[in-house]
Computed example of a mutant assay.
Amino acid sequence: MELLTDYIDFWQDKYESILTYMWEHLVISFVVMLLSIVITIPLAIYMTKMKSERIKGMIFNIANVFQTIPTVALLAIMIPLMGIGFKPAVAALFLYALLPLLRNTYTGIQSIDPSIVEAAKGMGFSSFGRLMKVELPAALPYVMSGIRVTTVYIISWTTLAALIGAGGLGDLILAGIGYNDKQMIFTGTLLAIVIAMLLDLLFQTFEKKYSKA
């Protein structure tokens, strides 16, 4: 009971700082996901139209390389290139988001039954019309799965962005480690988990609603 009382007092004293950290965390994560979706999904769609398997393999290999680099190392690499703060954190996390979105969208489009695409052609759909009315809706479960997985990863990895001065809940966790304050560590960790779960639920709800439409 005493622990709960102490934790409530901690929130009352620090809630403004906690909200600031949480807002910074959300902004970084949102920008990374927005850039990832806007750039990666169209790239994956374009790759399904490519005839060169060599070029497609090269793109996947490059995206895969970024996944093999430890998060802290990639963030550190960005410092001499872009300095510290928001921009290098977004750039590093964007590189991590490439592979799951690219792979899932590409797989989703490629898994569509060719007879469905041919039927759409027979009905007079243009290439863009087939993409919007047939291919993307059919590939939606794959695309949304990639978005959901990537979002959870990004929310988690954004906590490390504090190491290069980008802010976010990682600042709260690092401060807790520095001051040996378990409440700060627990709060930063818990909020990151809650944000990831809520966003995953939001995307899941969107996917179900859109699939039924």
Rank of each mutant, 00 (worst) to 15 (best):
L98Y: 08
P100A: 05
R103E: 15
R103Y: 14
N104E: 10
N104G: 12
T105W: 00
G108S: 08
G108A: 09
I109Y: 05
S111H: 11
I112G: 14
D113A: 07
S115W: 03
I116Y: 07
V117C: 03
E118L: 11
E118T: 12
A119Q: 05
A120T: 10
A120I: 02
A120Y: 09
K121W: 01
G124P: 04
F125A: 12
S126K: 05
S126A: 02
S127M: 03
G129W: 00
G129S: 10
L131M: 14
M132F: 08
E135G: 03
L136P: 05
P137E: 01
A138R: 07
A138N: 10
A139C: 01
L140V: 01
L140N: 00
L140F: 10
Y142N: 10
V143H: 00
V143D: 00
M144H: 00
M144I: 13
S145Y: 00
S145Q: 03
R148H: 01
V149S: 08
T151I: 03
V152S: 00
V152R: 00
S156P: 09
S156L: 12
S156D: 07
W157G: 09
W157S: 13
T158N: 12
T159Y: 00
A161W: 04
A161G: 14
A161D: 05
I164A: 09
G165E: 14
L169N: 11
L174Q: 15
I177N: 04
G178C: 05
G178Q: 14
G178S: 15
N180E: 03
N180G: 02
